[in-house]
Amino acid sequence: MALRALARRIQQRWREDDGDASLQMLICFPAALLLILMVVDTCNVYFAKQAATTAAREAVSGARAYGSGTEDGIARADAVFRRVGGTLRGPRVSTAGSNAERVVFTVTAKAPSLIGLNISIIERATGPVERWTSP
Rank of each mutant, 00 (worst) to 15 (best):
L23W: 05
W132H: 11
E71I: 06
G116Q: 06
G69A: 14
A63G: 12
T53I: 14
L33W: 10
D20P: 09
R82L: 12
R131Y: 08
T126S: 03
R8Q: 15
E123M: 05
P112E: 02
A100K: 06
Q24W: 08
R124T: 08
A111G: 07
T126H: 00
N99F: 02
T42A: 15
P112A: 02
A65F: 13
R15I: 12
E130P: 00
S120H: 03
G127C: 00
S94Q: 03
T106D: 01
S120K: 08
G97N: 00
D18L: 11
I119Q: 04
A59M: 04
R89K: 12
Y46N: 11
V104T: 04
G116A: 05
Q11G: 14
I36E: 10
A5P: 13
W14H: 13
K49D: 11
Y66P: 14
R4K: 13
A111R: 04
E58K: 10
F81S: 03
D41S: 11
Q24E: 12
R15A: 12
P30R: 06
I27H: 00
D41G: 10
F47I: 05
G19S: 04
L23Y: 04
Y46H: 12
C43I: 14
L117E: 10
T126W: 00
G116K: 08
G85E: 05
S113W: 06
L26R: 03
S68C: 10
G85L: 00
G19L: 06
D72N: 12
A111T: 01
L35N: 12
G69I: 10
V93N: 01
Q11M: 15
T53W: 10
A2I: 14
A77K: 03
N44S: 11
L114M: 09
R82D: 11
G85Y: 01
T106G: 01
D18R: 14
A51L: 03
G67C: 07
A111K: 04
V84F: 02
T126Y: 01
Q50D: 15
D78Y: 10
I121F: 08
L88F: 09
G86R: 07
R89A: 13
G90W: 02
D20I: 13
I74S: 10
Q11A: 15
T70M: 06
A7S: 14
T87N: 09
F47H: 06
R82G: 10
A59L: 03
F81D: 08
T70A: 09
A63S: 07
R82F: 11
R8I: 12
R4E: 15
F81E: 02
N118L: 06
F105N: 01
K49N: 15
E16L: 11
L26E: 01
R131H: 06
P128C: 01
V103D: 02
G116W: 04
L6E: 15
A79P: 04
N99R: 02
V84R: 06
T133L: 02
